[in-house]
């Protein structure tokens, strides 16, 4: 778990995606190659911004063991201002949710490997207050 998580912390800590300079498509999670342009791909990293709109969501009541303390928790699809759609946990109460609401990225704990293991951090979203 540690190596696979660690390799992606750059993209989990911040909303960084990849852009194919050949066709202009933006991807998150990032890709090493553009599936459309294939060998003509020209990949660069892009900042996707930290604001977006909630497209849809699910409320998870039957949580896995490591999420039990958070249930019910929310997973949503967020369309960022850059146009890219990302899947993320929304850190709020289900009663606060409304499709189309503005959300912003925050830095939160994802989980931990028990009391003596590594702690995982990354991006989640919360409703915009302003």
């Amino acid at each position: 778990m540690i190596p696979s998580f660690w390799r992606k912390i750059r993209y989990r800590y911040n909303l960084t995606g990849t852009k194919c300079e050949n066709c202009g498509r933006i991807y998150h999670p990032p890709r090493n190659i553009c599936p459309e342009c294939r060998r003509k791909s020209s990949i660069t990293e892009v900042d996707l911004g930290d604001r977006g709109e909630l497209l849809t969501y699910s409320i998870v009541h039957d949580a896995p063991e490591s999420f039990k303390l958070q249930r019910p928790y929310v997973i949503g699809l967020i369309k960022l201002e850059s146009g890219v759609v990302v899947t993320s946990q929304i850190s709020c109460k289900p009663s606060e949710l409304r499709i189309g609401m503005k959300v912003k990225a925050v830095f939160r704990k994802y989980g931990e490997d028990g009391e003596d293991g590594i702690i995982y951090y990354g991006t989640k979203f919360v409703p915009c207050e302003e």
């Binding site: 303390l69 958070q70 850190s91 925050v106 830095f107 939160r108 704990k109 994802y110 702690i119 951090y121 989640k124």
Partner: peptide, 16 residues
């Protein structure tokens, strides 16, 4: 703090 907040997340948020 919320269940997913700790000194690291609070530090990042105020620094950002």
């Amino acid at each position: 703090p919320d269940i997913d907040e700790d000194t690291v997340t609070i530090s990042v948020e105020c620094a950002r």
